[in-house]
């Protein structure tokens, strides 16, 4: 990456899930690996295979702190991988687990993380079927990193694709936004605030199954992780060539999350989630989809938040005054601001 001044290094913001991440993937990754499946940039790749369609995904987990209210790096890695499979319409089957841990890492924390991996895998109904452990020297890594791969099977006839969103479709979210990002920030001491907000990290097996049963014509699913809902909707808008209109007053946000966003100068639409999904659903199935989501444990606060319209591939927020704003792809990692 260069900024026009010949400055060529990886920045933390390249991993932030926003505009910089997107450019890194498009300019440096896609250009080197010619694959139509990769170029879809979906949460999982779907590979046609005689007799079945296989979904494959991979992810790395570097969250700090390792333990936070509502979860830990172990729960996050299973939930994140399972959710990536689910977003492609796959039924998750099995996960791999890679561990990179540094010399001197407390064995108690190591066990606690693995126990959490096991518990979350059991909750999601998947097994960890292969793995790898590497140890590195004290200065080569900060604590522990996890990597996963996940495989699943996409049922016959199901095709979820961001490009399938059409004018008239409804936009649903499966619950409150911003919980994970704010939970993590409130644990970082130098920000000087604490919060009872817990991360939403969770495998979405149950709500996604309910949703797809109730709304079989669902166009696509996306988990609004890094970059938040703003990044997720911008990706769908770009892939489908349609505008997405977001009714901002309909977006479910907890009071304390809204307060923390005001305090830190963040837009909740850019804050990460780890147990939520966005669904684009044809209008005649939207109510059934919403009811199905709300009948599940992790979908109780689901809401219909917008619609797809013909137009430029943009996301436009409309508030209850009728005021409109462009909701941009976030640039990179969210930083607290004072102005």
């Amino acid at each position: 990456m260069t900024d026009g001044n010949g400055n060529d290094t990886i920045l933390l913001a390249h991993g932030g899930g926003g505009e910089l991440s997107d450019r890194l993937v498009r300019e440096e990754i896609l250009s080197r690996f010619p694959s139509r499946e990769l170029a879809r940039l979906a949460d999982s790749a779907v590979i046609d295979f005689p007799g079945s369609r296989l979904a494959l995904t991979t992810d790395g987990y570097v969250v700090r702190p390792l333990f936070f209210r509502g979860g830990d790096i172990g729960r996050l890695c299973v939930a994140g991988t399972v959710n990536d499979l689910l977003m492609s319409g796959a039924t998750p089957l099995a996960l791999s687990l890679g561990v990179i841990v540094r010399d001197g890492f407390p064995m108690g924390d190591f066990r606690r993380i693995l126990d959490s991996v096991a518990a979350t895998a059991a909750e999601a109904g998947v097994q960890i079927v292969t793995g790898d452990t590497k140890t590195v020297g004290h200065n080569a890594a900060d604590g522990i990193f996890l990597t996963t791969a996940g495989v699943g099977v996409v049922p016959e006839g199901r095709r979820l694709d961001y490009a399938a969103a059409q004018p008239g479709d409804a936009v649903l979210v499966s619950g409150t936004l911003g919980d994970h990002g704010i939970a993590i920030m409130s644990e970082r001491q130098q920000l000087g605030f604490t919060s009872a907000i817990a991360s939403d990290a969770a495998p979405l097996v149950e709500p996604v199954a309910a949703l797809l049963a109730a709304a079989p014509a669902t166009r696509c699913l996306k988990d609004p992780t890094r970059g938040g809902l703003a990044a997720a909707l911008n990706e769908i808008a770009r892939a489908s060539g349609c505008s997405i209109i977001l009714e901002e007053s309909q977006v479910p946000v907890r009071e304390a999350v809204a307060g923390a966003c005001d305090l830190l100068g963040l837009d909740v639409l850019n804050v990460a989630n780890e147990g939520k999904c966005v669904a684009i659903v044809p209008p005649d199935q939207a109510e059934a989809a919403l009811a199905a989501l709300r009948s599940t444990r992790y979908g109780r606060e689901a809401a219909r938040v917008g619609r797809v319209e013909a137009g430029k591939p943009l996301v436009v927020g409309v508030n209850d005054l009728g005021g409109r704003r462009l909701i941009e792809m976030p640039y990179g990692e969210q930083l607290p601001r004072i102005c």
């Binding site: 000087g192 605030f193 907000i197 304390a256 307060g259 923390a260 005001d262 305090l263 100068g265």
Partner: peptide, 28 residues
Amino acid sequence: MCLAVPGKLIERDGHSGTVDVRGNRVQA
């Protein structure tokens, strides 16, 4: 130019205090 949020002072210790901002506890 300056973000500022209202909150209720719930603890005081000399020159510092804890302010409740919509359910978050902020050192001020």
